[in-house]
Design a protein around this nucleic acid. Sequence first.
DNA 1: TTCTCGCATCTAAACGATTAGATAATGCAT
DNA 2: ATGCATTATCTAATCGTTTAGATGCGAGAA
Lengths: 332, 332
Amino acid sequence: MSEPAGKPATLADVARRAGTSTAVVSYVINDGPRPVAAATRARVLAAAEELGYRPNRIARALRSRTTGVVGLVLADALNPYFGALARHVEQSLAGYGRLMLIGNAGYSAERQRHLVERFLAAQVDGLVIASADADGAADVAALARTPGVPAVYLHNGPATGDTPLVTADNEHAVRAALAHLRAHGHRDIAFLAGPRDTGPVGRRREVWESAAGPGAAPLRCAYSRAEADALIRRLAARDAVPRALIAATDEQAIGVLSGACAAGIPVPGRIAVIGLDGTPDSAHTAPSLTVTGQPLEAMARQAVDLLLGRAAPAPLPPATLVTRRSCGCAES
Amino acid sequence: MSEPAGKPATLADVARRAGTSTAVVSYVINDGPRPVAAATRARVLAAAEELGYRPNRIARALRSRTTGVVGLVLADALNPYFGALARHVEQSLAGYGRLMLIGNAGYSAERQRHLVERFLAAQVDGLVIASADADGAADVAALARTPGVPAVYLHNGPATGDTPLVTADNEHAVRAALAHLRAHGHRDIAFLAGPRDTGPVGRRREVWESAAGPGAAPLRCAYSRAEADALIRRLAARDAVPRALIAATDEQAIGVLSGACAAGIPVPGRIAVIGLDGTPDSAHTAPSLTVTGQPLEAMARQAVDLLLGRAAPAPLPPATLVTRRSCGCAES
DNA sequence: TTCTCGCATCTAAACGATTAGATAATGCAT
DNA sequence: ATGCATTATCTAATCGTTTAGATGCGAGAA
């Protein structure tokens, strides 16, 4: 039972009550580096229980130089793709008893650096970097390397170097989307890319480019619903809306849907749309969005495992095409 | 300039270099409790700069019993309403140099308690509780009160007691929505409530009930797009879709939009819809969603100010009706 | 000149844990 | 009985700050 209140019990309090030194108490609490006699262990445990002892993580952190906190640098917390990723990272970390500090960079490299500085100041044990573009992510990892804090890139990042990168099979996703739209009879398939798509996520566009033939240029806009929405309206105004479109992200795809609706352009009748992320949101749009579903949970788990050195890099499940209505399929 | 690497510089290092004691260095760094001669201060600052000194927050926390970290308990990080709230809370906290620990409870009281335990173990300086239902929030605040950690309810919570509550003007929002739908000629206006709407957010439903007259029962479903989507499809199957509907949350309203689309029910032609949150997402749905926009940023800022004791409770800006297409208005 | 203030600094004790090294207690072989 | 491992425990240094109390010093008052 926990004591009424007073000051919280310390190791020394427990030791006193159990009639031992603080050392043995510590050994018991941590299954410490040294063994403790069974009888003593029992007394200590009882004393700790009676006092409602909770180890002071701060003191522990000071002495052992590890905080049990991991920082997550997020490109955009309001983008459901990153939001879902964040939730899964948090859960995986919780599974290892780690807490997560979260920082939202709003796609700004500046803010991203700032966040990392603050995370490092807070002595995080590691960093998960979920950045939209690979270069910004590299910057951040370099920052972390100086004080020797391990890092992992999550969704995008440079493949080179010692910082591991966990990303979906972007190429397969695009090929699946292309194949599906072709099966619907589409010949000309447009691609909506992000403003700066470096790294593996840029492969999405590259794969499309090589499939679309030489000279094909993607549409581009920021990774936001608002921009994609506005883009489609502009296209509609000059009657330049493509018959089929793959959006690099669900966020953009959803903007396309709303823009098309506002401009009176039927989806999928006049334009078929596929998103490449597979966020939870995509199931509940009007019309429902066909996507290539990335294994978000597996990705998050793997990133955490890698960061904590708990598991070797295993192959991720592939992105699977989830057919819904925006591509022209019937509701499933 | 920061030193190449080595071990990070400590207070003692700076003191040695500046030829002073650690005490004065501390006084300088913190504009400490005691004054320091201008010349000395300059030397200390120079030494700190040269060594790239960064205070060790852990040690500081141990000694001064304050961590500079605030925990945010979130009902559902994937709900854009809470997501936006979280982002604003983070920004406000950053303005005061505080870091934010985030925890996602997934609407579960159990997980909520769990999170708070872990936050308290991490010695947070305070707790912002953004819970969907008031009772769960009260639980959590009680937990925090034991070790004397201050807390603030953000979106919903019990109005009683010493824990402050920051919430929008829910009643005004509903009245505005009702008035607007009536102006569109609607007489029978349905209401889609959450599963357990206690506290001020429950007022949304209550206001509707008193306006709708005795015996009026709201529709109910979980705060998720999926459930609202499914609900509308069921209603459509037995031809029971209302002509106008106010959804307690945007999340539900968006689900209604997608369910209606799937069931072939035109919005706003056959059913007019208004959401009561005003999330960023609501601007980019198909059709665009009319909402009563809550002052999310102001709410977050006020919660943080209250928590940190920086400001007196000021009146929040009112929720303003943002007319878009789902209610029958033309695109603005 | 001597005594007092005040100011600028210094010394050293916390904060609450971890853990290497010293010490005590036991068993066993001699 | 004596010595030597082995095991169980204790002592105390340490992590990097903060801050109350002690100290030193120069200026003004007597």
